[in-house]
Simulated assay, not measured.
Amino acid sequence: MSKKTVVLGASENPSRYSYLAVNKLRAYGHPVVAIGNKKGVIGDIAITTERPEEKNTDTVTLYLNPQLQQHYYDYILSLKPKRIIFNPGTENDELEELAKSNGIQVMEACTLVLLGTGQY
Rank of each mutant, 00 (worst) to 15 (best):
G118T: 00
A99P: 00
S78H: 07
T111V: 09
I35C: 04
E53C: 02
N102H: 02
I84T: 04
G9L: 07
T57S: 03
S18C: 05
E50W: 07
Y63L: 03
K80I: 01
Q70D: 06
A21G: 06
M1I: 03
E97Q: 11
S15K: 15
I84N: 08
G43R: 02
L114A: 01
D58W: 07
N56G: 10
P66G: 08
K82D: 14
G40C: 08
S18Y: 02
S78C: 00
E108C: 10
S2F: 15
E12C: 09
K55R: 13
G103D: 00
Q70E: 09
I45K: 02
A109T: 02
G116F: 11
H30G: 01
G103S: 00
M107N: 08
S2T: 10
K24D: 15
Q70L: 11
A99C: 03
E91V: 04
T49A: 08
L98A: 00
N56L: 06
L64V: 14
G118I: 04
L25V: 11
L79P: 01
I42R: 05
T90D: 06
M107P: 01
Q105H: 09
H30T: 00
F86Q: 06
N23V: 15
L64A: 12
R83E: 03
K3M: 04
P14Q: 12
K100I: 03
L62F: 07
L8A: 07
N13W: 12
G89L: 09
L64K: 15
L62Q: 12
Y63T: 01
P52L: 06
D58V: 06
N102Y: 02
I84G: 11
H71Q: 05
T59M: 07
D74P: 13
A10D: 03
Q69D: 03
R83C: 03
G89M: 08
V113N: 12
K82N: 13
N13M: 12
G43F: 11
Q67W: 12
Y72E: 02
F86T: 01
R16Q: 14
A99Y: 08
S18D: 03
E108R: 13
L25G: 10
P14D: 13
V41Q: 13
P88H: 07
T117L: 12
L114S: 00
H71Y: 08
N65K: 14
S2N: 08
Y73I: 04
P66M: 07
Q69W: 14
V33F: 04
E12A: 13
L25W: 14
N37D: 14
D44S: 12
V41G: 03
T90Y: 11
I35T: 03
V7R: 00
I35Q: 03
A10K: 08
G118Q: 02
